[in-house]
Design a protein around this nucleic acid. Structure first.
Lengths: 233, 233
DNA sequence: CCGACACTTCGGAGTCTTCCGAAGCGATCG
DNA sequence: CGATCGCTTCGGAAGACTCCGAAGTGTCGG
C-alpha cells in the first residue's frame, strides 16, 4: 500500500497535454528531433526542451544526439504498450464530447501504432483475418490458427522468425480512433513490415499516417478479402 | 496529432500520489468504502472524497451506494490492465532509489493482482509452469501448451469455461515487486480462483495480500514443483 | 428523536507547475 | 572566421492543484 510513488510520477508525466502530445507523436517508435516534437507538442521549443529532459530522466524516452540535432524516441516497447493501455482506457471512458472530426483524416484512415497497423485499415485487416478464421482475438490475447499460419507464411510473413512456432504471439490493441481492436504483437508487427516490403504501404513524412498504394489497394481486397468500403479506401 | 486530451486527463488523474494509492488499493477488483480508501490514500477523508469524485467522473471508478457507505471499485478490467501497464513501465524505469524494503512484506510474498496471483508466489508459479513446459510466456502474450492444458484440467481448472479451447488466453503481467512476469489473463484468473477454492490460499482482511495455508504449501511444492525457497515460504 | 457515523461540500492557505522571453552553447555552413 | 541553426538553461509571472478545518447531508442505532 506504499510502493506506488513511481506510478504517480509516470502519471504526472503523462498528465500534461504537451508531454502527452510528445509521447503520442513518438508512438510509432521513430526518433524525432526536439523541434519536430515542439511542433507536435504545440508549445515553444524552450518549453518542449524542459519536458523532453524530464521524460528522458524518467526513462520514458531516450536521447540520441547526432550533430546539432537531438533525437528522442520511446525508451522501450514497454512504454509504447503502457501508452496504448492509457489510450484504450481513455477511449472507452466518458462520452468524449470532443468534436471527433478533429483528428487528421489521413491518420484515421491508416497509420502505424508503434510497429503495427492501426486506423480503419488496421481494424479492417483484423476483422478480415478474424472472419476467415485466420486469427482469434479476445480481450486478453490472441492466437494464430493453423490455417492462419499457412496463410501468413504464404503471404511471406516469417512466422519462425517471430520465435519458434507456437510463440508467434498475437495480441489485440484497442484502436483509439475506431474504438475497436486491431492486430498487434509480433504477428501484427511482422504483417505490417511485410506490407511495407511489398510496397503496399508507404509512410508519410512527418506523420504516423501511411498511404496505401494501388498495388496495396488491390492486394488488401484480393488477398485479405477486405471490402474496399470497410477499409475506407 | 491532436486526439490526445483524454490521455493527458487520465495521466493527470493517476499522477497524484493520493489518487495513485487509491487506484492501487482497488487493483484487485474489490469494492472499498471511502473511508478505507482514505486510509490507503494517506490523506483525510475530505480530501479523498474529492479525489474519488474526480476518478468516478472520469469513469476510472464506479460508485455504488449502500446504506451510509459508498463503495468504489475500478470501472472495468480495462482500467486494471492500464494500471498494470503503468506499473510495469515504472518498475523497469529509473533505478528506484526507494529503500525497497519499504513495501509490506506480506504483499511481496503473495498477493492478488486484479484477478490473478502476484508477488513471489505468483512469479514462482509462472516460473514452474514455464520450466515444465506447461505454458509459454513472451513479452507480448502467452500460450498454454497441450501438456499444460492436460495438467490444468487435472488440477480442476475449467479451461472450456475460459472460452472454447484455443481461446484460453494466457498473458504475462510484470510483477512490480519482483520485476519479473507472472501469469495473468483468463488462465491466471482461473488458476487463482481454483487455489482459493481448494483452500490453498486465503485473502487477508483489508489487504491484497494472501496467506498460503499448510495445504497450499504442500500443494504448490508437490503439484506445481515450486521449490519452497524460491516460493519464499 | 437524538447522537454517532459515513460521507460530502465549501473556503482559503500553501505549494507546485507550466509557460514564454531572453540569453547561452555547440555544431554546421558559407 | 562569422553567421545561422538547433537546442538548452535561466528567471519570473500567471495559473492550477492539493490539502485540511469547518460545516452540511443523509443513514443507522438506541
Amino acid at each position: 500500500m506504499s510502493t506506488t510513488p513511481s506510478m504517480a510520477e509516470i502519471g504526472a508525466l503523462v498528465g500534461n497535454p504537451a508531454r502527452a502530445n510528445v509521447l503520442v507523436a513518438l508512438l510509432d517508435g521513430r526518433a524525432l528531433t526536439a523541434t519536430e516534437l515542439a511542433f507536435a507538442a504545440r508549445v515553444t521549443p524552450q518549453t518542449t526542451s524542459g519536458h523532453l529532459a524530464r521524460l528522458a530522466q524518467a526513462r520514458l524516452l531516450v536521447l540520441e544526439k547526432r550533430g546539432r540535432h537531438s533525437y528522442y524516441r520511446l525508451a522501450s516497447p514497454l512504454i509504447g504498450r503502457m501508452l496504448e493501455g492509457i489510450m484504450a482506457a481513455a477511449a472507452d471512458g466518458p462520452p468524449r464530447r470532443r468534436p471527433a472530426g478533429m483528428g487528421d483524416e489521413a491518420l484515421r484512415a491508416a497509420r502505424t501504432c508503434y510497429d503495427h497497423l492501426a486506423g480503419r485499415l488496421g481494424v479492417a485487416l483484423a476483422d478480415a483475418l478474424i472472419a476467415r478464421r485466420r486469427i482469434v482475438l479476445a480481450e486478453d490475447g490472441g492466437q494464430v490458427t493453423d490455417r492462419g499460419a499457412r496463410f501468413l507464411t504464404g503471404f511471406g510473413v516469417d512466422l519462425a522468425a517471430s520465435e519458434r512456432r507456437r510463440r508467434a504471439f498475437c495480441r489485440p490493441c484497442l484502436d483509439w480512433s475506431e474504438r475497436r481492436p486491431h492486430l498487434a504483437g509480433a504477428i501484427g508487427a511482422a504483417l505490417a513490415t511485410r506490407c511495407f516490403e511489398l510496397g503496399w504501404l508507404e509512410r508519410m513524412r512527418d506523420s504516423r499516417a501511411v498511404v496505401i498504394s494501388p498495388a496495396g489497394r488491390r492486394g488488401f481486397v484480393e488477398v485479405f478479402g477486405i471490402a474496399p468500403i470497410n477499409g475506407g479506401f
